[in-house]
Design a protein around this nucleic acid. Structure first.
Lengths: 143, 143
DNA sequence: TATATTTAGTTAACTTTGTTAATTATTAGC
DNA sequence: GCTAATAATTAACAAAGTTAACTAAATATA
């Protein structure tokens, strides 16, 4: 790695530690960060399937199956069997699930607000642009 | 959240999913991503203590204790009891541990290289600067 | 049409890694 | 010198990941 890459590597390491430290810790409103992320995904991808969720979070079907079971039993999401393909269940959030997403200030939101407070509007836009550019390139190359 | 914050939030969400997806997956050279991160930390903080490692990764002393035990038993790191305070053990990497850090292209390194390929040098420097600014502000406010 | 293959999701058994509570050994404060 | 605090470990447990095996439904093929 050259100097610029090393400098990026340093700060990206900090970022990774920060993100990991803020995951999987105690519940807020009865859901962990992972639960929250799944609920939010389903909220934003209404009528999606378990397979899609598993893929989005890169975890195995049994793992997502257990998570969805928990979220259904606790009233955050619900599922409906597809008429077109009865193997498939379409997922959607309940009122309670929607409430959680709309009302809990999550970790990413506090980071976004922190970023907005620290940077000028131009800088924030620039950061978003550059990060998106990297993400779309790196993630795209990954499969 | 305003529009700029929302845009940042979107891409930060992708980034979080990406980082989480690349953690805790199968071994490379016999160590998981978590093991690797601990070895690298000890490499960069020679003679550090278990307590420091636990704090750096925001996990409990027993959790780090088990990880260190694994890394010692498998020859990646070693510990030496402090003379000044015999409760304390100073950690350092072995030749094998150093080899792992020096030779395995890790996830963050591939992101750094990807970023460097996608962005101009000026853009990469800008991204590093902005990310560092946000990190130091947000992490600093967190305790 | 009947049979074989593929697919979505679940269950079971297990592993890893986190947690808290209790314990040990050592240091530091009155 | 006794008491409180600290670094690390052990034990018991919980959460969440994995693979393998299974069910039910859809699709492909002979």
């Amino acid at each position: 790695m050259n100097q610029s890459q090393k400098e990026f590597y340093e700060v990206f390491t900090e970022l990774q530690c920060f993100i990991l430290a803020n995951m999987q810790k105690g519940d807020i409103n009865g859901v962990t960060a992972t639960h929250y992320n799944i609920i939010e995904y389903i909220y934003r991808h209404n009528k999606c399937t378990g397979k899609q969720v598993a893929k989005a979070f890169s975890i195995s079907p049994p793992a997502i199956s257990r998570q969805l079971k928990f979220l259904i039993e606790n009233g955050f999401i619900e599922q409906e069997q597809s008429r077109a393909d009865r193997r498939v269940f379409h997922l959607s959030v309940t009122g309670q699930g929607r409430f959680i997403v709309d009302n809990s200030e999550n970790f990413r939101e506090s980071v976004a607000k922190g970023a907005s407070k620290t940077l000028t509007k131009t800088e924030l836009k620039s950061l978003t642009f550059l990060l998106a550019k990297v993400m779309h390139n790196v993630v795209g190359n990954d499969h």
